Simulated assay, not measured.
Amino acid sequence: MLAQAESQYTTGTGTPITASAKLDFQITIPKILFLRVGSGADYTTNTVVNQIAFVVPANQVGTGGLGIAATAASGDLNDGKVTAKLVGNNGTITLTSTTLGALSNGVAGDTISYSQIETTESVLSSGTALAHPTLADGATTTSTVAPGTGKLVNRDAVWTYKYKNAAVVAPGVYGGVNANNSRVTYTASMP
């Protein structure tokens, strides 16, 4: 913050005598962009990557229906739920999700498409939940977040993931910790 001031010295015998001074204020605000998906604290950089894991019971493989919920320890909010937060102060923000390909178990031809991962959004603390961009195999998908008043975007949500379990697939562990196309990269961009 920068402040500049002036002064004035007055003398005399009249009534009243006055002196005045002025100040100019200046505040510089930088452009900010913050994206959080999972663990961490607001407005800090965090390198923790959460995992969402599903274990399909043998008697339910490929049955679809209500899908399979994530394991209890999945996501920063557990049960396949993560905190999602997007804050920016310079207008419309694009939010993308990128995958390297379908989930694999390491055997050629054995894959599960990201289209089998269902994501729902619910309000966390902002008035409107932050929408989740669609997941697609080996692609980047984009959603646009329009600003509110004064070019500001301040949205968050709880993103909950489920495995649709719509097809019988070969056995194995698909994905992992940054293995077999398991990693989804979310990116925010603002002008």
Rank of each mutant, 00 (worst) to 15 (best):
S7I: 09
S7G: 15
Q8V: 10
Q8E: 15
Y9K: 13
Y9V: 15
Y9A: 14
T10L: 07
T10S: 14
T10N: 10
G12D: 13
T13E: 14
T13M: 12
G14T: 14
G14V: 13
T15K: 15
T15Q: 15
P16N: 12
P16D: 10
T18V: 08
T18G: 08
A19Q: 03
A19G: 13
A19L: 06
S20Q: 11
A21M: 09
K22V: 10
L23C: 06
L23H: 05
L23Q: 09
L23R: 08
D24K: 13
F25G: 11
F25R: 07
F25T: 09
Q26F: 06
Q26P: 00
I27H: 07
P30E: 08
P30Y: 07
K31D: 12
K31R: 12
I32N: 05
I32Q: 05
L33Q: 02
L33D: 02
F34S: 04
F34N: 03
L35E: 02
L35A: 01
L35S: 01
R36C: 03
R36Y: 01
R36I: 03
G38K: 00
S39A: 11
S39I: 01
G40T: 04
G40K: 00
A41C: 00
D42Q: 06
D42I: 00
Y43T: 01
Y43D: 05
T44V: 09
